[in-house]
């Protein structure tokens, strides 16, 4: 549990009962439905779900791309959702940064690395000298393991892994506290994935960054996240510390996701039973579900009857361990 020490009890981001909807009236679509969670300073908070589950939308509403239709988001205890004054907005632009999935699509093909990395600095209030800016670019490139000379090149001259590093450098140059990484390694080769994951955790240690890590792949999550929230169709169904979630998954959707992780073990794989999540197992007609703490630091979306079953399941597991 040594690595737990890096996490403080200070809440950096608080997401309180937010909903995000797209369209109006007849075409209304609820992408995020009454979601709450906190992200502590220094941790890596993982958000796992399938495409269309709303995981990216949550990330985007924290960085203020999508307005929330209900609820509020706080950063350092200060409300940042809805209308905020210009000064705060400007401050947040630097403090919260994002890393995108596809390094082929997220870099401007016609700009040099120098401009791509420092574009964010141009909008800063106090203008810096050209020399200062160049120095910052060089520093950011070095931080992500690239050579400062690369600043004069174009994105197409780089491999996928290097491009993702450029994307990370672009975020770092703003000196953020909080980085939203939206599927940062899904588009990369397995061997490059490892490099980028290592880089991200390295930067976290050095700069005390906090991450919201969005992905659909639980095997990557287990490696990088301190806590994981599982999201399904706009609702978070389970949230726990990573090891706890892997040891005692309770929600049937979490179980299905876990069963789908491919293992590098042919014998186990051939025996594996795939669980498929069927939302109709929930009987929410009379007994309404709510967001509850089923054991310390382990939250789940369930109704009373389900909660009882989950508790039994937990107890059974603990008894087995005791024997």
């Amino acid at each position: 549990m040594a690595e737990m020490t890096k996490i403080t009890n200070e809440k950096l981001v608080e997401v309180n009962h937010i909903s995000v909807t797209f369209g109006e009236r007849k075409h209304k679509f609820v992408a995020v439905d009454d979601v709450s969670f906190d992200i502590y300073k220094g941790e890596t908070f993982g958000l796992v779900g399938e495409s269309g589950s709303g995981k990216t939308t949550i990330g985007r509403s924290i960085i203020r791309i999508h307005p929330v239709s209900q609820g509020e988001i706080k950063f350092h205890g200060q409300i940042i959702s809805g209308n905020i004054d210009k000064e705060l907005d400007r401050e947040l632009t630097g403090k919260i940064q994002m890393i995108f999935q596809d390094p082929m699509a997220s870099l401007n093909e016609r700009a040099k690395v120098d401009y791509i990395v420092s574009e964010g600095l141009y909008s800063r209030e106090h203008k810096m000298t050209e020399a200062e800016r160049k120095e910052k670019v060089a520093k950011a490139l070095q931080d992500v393991g690239l050579l400062p000379e690369f600043a004069s090149r174009f994105p197409h001259e780089f491999s996928g892994g290097q491009r993702q590093r450029i994307g990370i450098a672009r975020a770092l140059i703003m000196e953020p506290e909080f980085i939203i990484a939206d599927e940062p390694i899904s588009a990369l080769d397995v061997s490059i994935r490892a490099q980028v994951l290592n880089l991200l955790s390295d930067l976290q240690k050095k700069k005390g960054l906090t991450y919201l890590f969005i992905a659909h792949d639980l095997s990557v999550m287990r490696f990088i996240a301190d806590r994981i929230a599982v999201i399904h169709k706009g609702k978070i169904v389970e949230l726990a510390q990573t090891e706890k979630l892997f040891a005692n998954p309770l929600h049937p959707y979490t179980k299905a996701l876990l069963s789908a992780i491919p293992q590098p073990d042919p014998i186990a794989e051939k025996k594996k039973k795939l669980l498929i999540y069927d939302p109709s197992v929930h009987d929410y007609d009379k007994d309404l579900p709510s967001w509850m703490e089923i054991e310390p630091e382990h939250y789940i979306y369930a109704n009373k009857r389900e909660a009882e079953e989950y508790r039994k399941e937990l107890k059974k597991k603990q008894d087995q361990k005791g024997v």
């Binding site: 690595e3 397995v190 990557v220 287990r222």
Partner: peptide, 20 residues
């Protein structure tokens, strides 16, 4: 060996993942 070692499934949290 390198390909297998870099699988995140085999990674140990808090340690660097093997990378080529």
């Amino acid at each position: 060996w390198a390909l297998l070692s870099s699988l995140p499934q085999l990674g140990i949290k808090g340690e660097d993942l093997y990378s080529i």
